[in-house]
Design a protein around this nucleic acid. Structure first.
Lengths: 182, 182
DNA sequence: CAAAACTATATCAAGTCGATATATATCAGT
DNA sequence: ACTGATATATATCGACTTGATATAGTTTTG
């Protein structure tokens, strides 16, 4: 384990207070959505491993006609471990875009298709900005506000760039070999 | 297989001409570095699977005192498959930043540490912009120029935002509980 | 009143990441 | 001339993550 992964972040979330796996997932969707994503498939195994390692403790709360809640709390050794993780050098930022990757093969797609593709990215980013702008005001902590603003600013810059430069690829994909597949 | 993955992209790279696994890796590092990354641990297994599926053919070139080159070419059915992949809806863009994630736990780090962290991200992004600016001129295709400009613009916006708003987190982390771990 | 979304758990195959291993060649600097 | 770094070229492996799927009752929305 060289750096921050789902395991460390579950631990980090538990420093804010005890929580169930489901609640941890929600934390990833709200607080961390800008910068880190994790699904149940990573969270539940992570919590099991953390329990085995003694970094979290788990108490079960029976509920009528619902699956029992498993409420996790961070232990002392868990907090130790997390603080050590926090002091490690972080990995480089990663960005992956299948849509923009597709553009590299613009010559193989009909021109129309390219335009629709770019329209969609712009639309996605726009929606993202709107959603963030709404939720940004509700954020309590300074770091959350900072990250929220970061997400908005960066996406707005991306939208502006795409609007101003889309012609570069939209014009290029016309003359080339039109190997359209039905 | 629902969308673009390393396998499809290897196929895509081979539409530009035959190549070895090593050369495909270089393509990911240059042309695709903006938007998609893949290592040998994904590329070599992908090429094996593609060979088994009959989507690529492989001819071996013996070299004296060097491991034999395996030169891959895309087949007709491979091109078919790739074009179908290209017409599928792409996944959402993903961004992951361990550094920015750390900022959520700013209260647990000494103020100095936070400042260093932000300095580093800004520095990383700056270097990225410089590198891209250099290589941008050499790019041949329009789509590569577009992506190059995209990378520069977005990171410049990120740098500007961080410089203008870093005080939000740098001031906040002072008063709170200083649970520093050596 | 039905359909959708929410609460809450969990697993699994397939895919990806990062490190490591093996060899040799070449190029730059001392 | 030697040393170390970088490049060519392959490949594997464990650990981790992803995305889909399953189960099952409750609450909200249209």
């Amino acid at each position: 384990m060289l750096l921050m992964n789902v395991k460390s972040l579950c631990l980090g979330i538990l420093t804010f207070g005890e929580a169930t796996g489901y609640e941890i997932k929600k934390a990833f969707e709200t607080q961390f959505s800008q910068v880190y994503d994790a699904g149940f498939g990573s969270i539940y195994p992570a919590l099991n491993q953390l329990t085995t390692s003694g970094y979290v403790s788990c108490r079960q709360e029976q509920q009528e006609k619902r699956p029992a809640k498993k409420i996790y709390s961070i232990t002392e050794s868990g907090l130790d471990f997390f603080l050590k993780e926090l002091h490690k050098a972080p990995a480089k930022d990663k960005f992956r875009s299948e849509t923009l990757t597709k553009l590299i093969f613009a010559d193989m797609l009909p021109r129309e298709n390219i335009s629709i593709l770019i329209d969609q990215v712009i639309d996605d980013y726009n929606n993202y900005v709107v959603d963030l702008s709404d939720s940004c005001c509700e954020k309590q902590s300074q770091s959350e506000k900072f990250l929220c603003g970061f997400g908005i600013t960066v996406r707005q810059a991306a939208i502006k760039y795409m609007q101003e430069n889309r012609h570069l690829i939209e014009s290029a994909s016309s003359s080339s070999s039109q190997q359209a597949a039905e």
